[in-house]
Design a protein around this nucleic acid. Sequence first.
DNA 1: TTCGCTGCAAATCCTTTGCATGATT
DNA 2: AATCATGCAAAGGATTTGCAGCGAA
Lengths: 183, 183
Amino acid sequence: MEQDVFKKMLKEKGLKVTGQRLLVLETIGAHPGEHLTAEEIFDLARAKSPEIGLATIYRALQMLVNLHVIRRVSFDDGLARYELSRELGGERHHHHHAICLGCKTVFSLEEDLLEPLEQNLLERLGFDVTDHEVKLYGYCRACRQKNPWAGGHEAEELFTTDDKMQKGKRTMKIEKKELEESD
Amino acid sequence: MEQDVFKKMLKEKGLKVTGQRLLVLETIGAHPGEHLTAEEIFDLARAKSPEIGLATIYRALQMLVNLHVIRRVSFDDGLARYELSRELGGERHHHHHAICLGCKTVFSLEEDLLEPLEQNLLERLGFDVTDHEVKLYGYCRACRQKNPWAGGHEAEELFTTDDKMQKGKRTMKIEKKELEESD
DNA sequence: TTCGCTGCAAATCCTTTGCATGATT
DNA sequence: AATCATGCAAAGGATTTGCAGCGAA
């Protein structure tokens, strides 16, 4: 299991293998496809280890990111979120997220469709892409069927006539969901 | 000029045209290609209007985002940055950023290479993309020529052997720069 | 034993908000 | 004159840090 790979990485870097660090990694690993926040990881971890502190979570997350074991992503709601890197071995990552402006669900796309783009970039501009992150904003099938306005362009419902602009920002739904074909 | 378009938008929404709001928009417009933070905009605005307050900047930015006049972007350094939307009229946006892991420069790519991907998504999965943001991480030509290690894979220099992981995070260089062909 | 790690609380940093004053329509 | 926006200061929320005690090597 990858727990062992992780332990080895720690030792190689002269870092200590602690229960807390293992727990943080295990917690993220137990929720594949989700994009947990530090607070969410804290709550989940605390369920197993009530004495763990939030600062420890942050420190472990920081370390895991630096070791490229996990990845920090953000969906512009002001919160950092974390997800497991696909391969600890060093394979390329594929990060495509489709965010529905209607229901705020974040869908994960598995396929990597940027290869040609990146090849092009290297050849023409000399920029060598080692990783990427793609966010697609739009409307999912369900929202499009429910709301005719969701077929076209801008997300008008995000703006209210008066001055009270997007309050409850912290409540964005981030779900474990992958787009599925159904045609 | 677009200042007038903006004034009209404000009036239509029942919002007031104030010097501060115009100044914020003007400030962002005066730095095309850069991705200014609220603080940077504050400093630039204060140079012209010393009495302006930071809260006003934030409120104006929020409003401009909601009106789709500007766009909020983030490069995972914990700071929100703002850039002018291409078209006030409602055309599609093209947001491709290539971030060099060597020199931390953010390059802007003008071309839109996602059309086929998005078409595909709509047809097969029913997800209608209305906007997108693409971040490509890698190494620019200059860094690749300077450092042989920058040809391959991970960004090892981001990790120091001991525990002091990326401190000075707030200092990321965000420059006005576009990738240019030179082959 | 040694040195790094944890937990707690305090400190920071960015951003938002409340309120009295001032500007726009 | 009526509202809405501004500036200031205080509040808020996420993340980081200092430090004494604890635990891994």
